[in-house]
Design a protein around this nucleic acid. Sequence first.
DNA 1: AAATTAAGTTTCCTATAGGAAACTTTTATG
DNA 2: CATAAAAGTTTCCTATAGGAAACTTAATTT
Lengths: 210, 210
Amino acid sequence: MKNKNETDSAPSMNIVRNEGGNEPKVKTVHIGQQVKAIRTQNKFTLEEASRRTGLAKSTLSKIENEQISPTFMVLQKLAAGLEIDLPQLFTQPSKVQASGRRDITKANTGKAHLTPTYEHELLATELSNKKMLPYKTCIRSRSFDEYGDWIRHEGEDFLFVLEGDIQLFTEFYEPVLLSKGDSAYYDATMGHAVISISEQDAHILWVTST
Amino acid sequence: MKNKNETDSAPSMNIVRNEGGNEPKVKTVHIGQQVKAIRTQNKFTLEEASRRTGLAKSTLSKIENEQISPTFMVLQKLAAGLEIDLPQLFTQPSKVQASGRRDITKANTGKAHLTPTYEHELLATELSNKKMLPYKTCIRSRSFDEYGDWIRHEGEDFLFVLEGDIQLFTEFYEPVLLSKGDSAYYDATMGHAVISISEQDAHILWVTST
DNA sequence: AAATTAAGTTTCCTATAGGAAACTTTTATG
DNA sequence: CATAAAAGTTTCCTATAGGAAACTTAATTT
């Protein structure tokens, strides 16, 4: 059945999502397998899992065999009873996540990325899905005015001065002067900007968390 | 068989969970509020959310008002239709996370941390709960043998050579020579170690993701 | 303010989730 | 191997989730 008798009319709804009458197609997470994996890893029998979660063992069995789609209430009992975080039920057990990656970037061979105010050299660009984005930057800007507005983005920034003198502007603090060897760490959602104040170009190393 | 011969007794590890026969008491996550918040933030009407998720608007209404406990199948449709990650439905919207922090570390004023092989200078130590741990390190070791075993830890490492020449050993790759300005990014769960191969001491900047 | 439209809620019904117990399968024991 | 015990599955029933449509409320227009 799943008789999806489409809402009459509604001609304009052209999201083109599931024309043709088939379902929106959700990439199915096999929660049953997850539950079973967690239970067996803990060496629980269905009976014991039943005790811990307060769910009937028949229910647990059906869930593990994907015969039913547990309600949210049941999911919560499961998580509480098996002492796991809810999100853990959905993320693949993926101990498989990469763990042997490496990327070397020799000096001045990074991937150039130019902006009016900065001259970025992105590092370690061969790797994707990194937790940090490192880049070496040459500061061109000499005045705060050159920035139309604060720079903001998700995550946190670590900044290390390699050469020259810079001034770091941040939304909630007074500007601060940084010279070679100095560093700063700040929440990147806070507005920020950097200008060079030395004769020669200033170079900094920047690492942004994702 | 794992039967360690302790049938019931097992005094040492009883989790003391719900003696007394009452329910396990689950801290309820109000998923309805979450859904409503996400929908309204996106300025969707129930009707539009219905189109996007393939769920009846009556169902959506009931979910938002906590009148029913959606099944996992419905949760998936919700997440897909509203284009959010499933876990996002359970974690509090917590925009409350800190977002105006800043910490400046002037050159050579970090917190020293010595090991037989490295001489670390921890940076930005005034801030806790950082997503990255930055430190400047002077490499003392001159031979791989000085390391009893590989160094490993959670997360990823970014390494930038500030001064001198080093050799980076990693578990799954051939050793590589790095000089001033070179950098490396690698999974820190992979065994790794660094030795200095230059006359003078080698200095590197290290950033570890957490 | 009545009429119109759009938003959200409730009703009513069918499909299905969850629980208790019977049943089947697997593992241990004489 | 027979038997007992334990672990897992299926059945059957009741409670409840989900969908269509009726209904109510809120926002616009006339």
